[in-house]
Design a protein around this nucleic acid. Sequence first.
DNA 1: TTCCATTGGTTCAAATTCGAATCACTTGCT
DNA 2: AGCAAGTGATTCGAATTTGAACCAATGGAA
Lengths: 151, 151
Amino acid sequence: MNEPRWLDELEMAAWQGFLEAGNRVARRLEQQLKDEAGLSHPQYEILVHLADAPGGEIRMTELAERLITSKSGLTYQVGQLERRGLVRRRACPTDVRGVFAVLTEEGRELLRGAAPGHVAAVREVLIDVLDREELAVLARALGEVGRRLRD
Amino acid sequence: MNEPRWLDELEMAAWQGFLEAGNRVARRLEQQLKDEAGLSHPQYEILVHLADAPGGEIRMTELAERLITSKSGLTYQVGQLERRGLVRRRACPTDVRGVFAVLTEEGRELLRGAAPGHVAAVREVLIDVLDREELAVLARALGEVGRRLRD
DNA sequence: TTCCATTGGTTCAAATTCGAATCACTTGCT
DNA sequence: AGCAAGTGATTCGAATTTGAACCAATGGAA
């Protein structure tokens, strides 16, 4: 059992910044979405991913992976969105077990209305706080971090 | 109502990286702590903050602010830790309403055992993936993001 | 064809989180 | 001293999250 390599000052600052920024940004955006669109962040993300997908539909498991959430969690949230008519389920033609989550016209409509305010909030708390150089480093570095954890 | 300024490619990459890395890192560390120390990440953070504080104790509200969590959430988690003997509560001498959360010897002990593995995991998923330059940018940029949201 | 390990999704119970309400104490002001 | 407003913490109920168990249905391999 080696002596552990503790974090030096810079490493600690990076780690703490990562934690604090992550927490605070999440909180703020959660608030913003709830207030302005009546959606939780997970719900908003579901709508965004569906809107981006061809046909506005994605298989449940695939969607759960993209959202980095559990399958059961997704089942729950899609249920919530379905109750509100923003999403519906469609059986998969080629696999009886499969289910597509499909964005409804109402869902697309709501998203259209919610997106501008959300993007503005993302700019305010993160994007517009940094310069291009910093954004580039963030994109590369955090992209690499995420990529490694994907496998 | 202006035309919203959407995110360009770089901004989108930074934002997505931030979201994905945040999610995946959180998940991984949650897992690591649960497996190796029987603690959730919020619980671990409570112990760390207490261990850093003079006397190993912090007032509840103050602690909640540092942890970026709700007061009620903290009440719950401190209750959990208290049940396990890792933390105890102490009445504040100067304010009857006040409560200190105090790290017990058992808590300090557990933390001592848990910290090396946790730090190693933090290195593996984040710190050691980046070079010094990137760490410096991360620390500065995310530090600024967090600071601004503190108000 | 016949198995059997996988896969896709939901259901379930347990744990956690939050905000609003509550309650008692403090503080600042007059 | 006497109040009104604010503070510190807990309690409560509602919403969410997770992993494990489950139930079909799939898809190779023998």
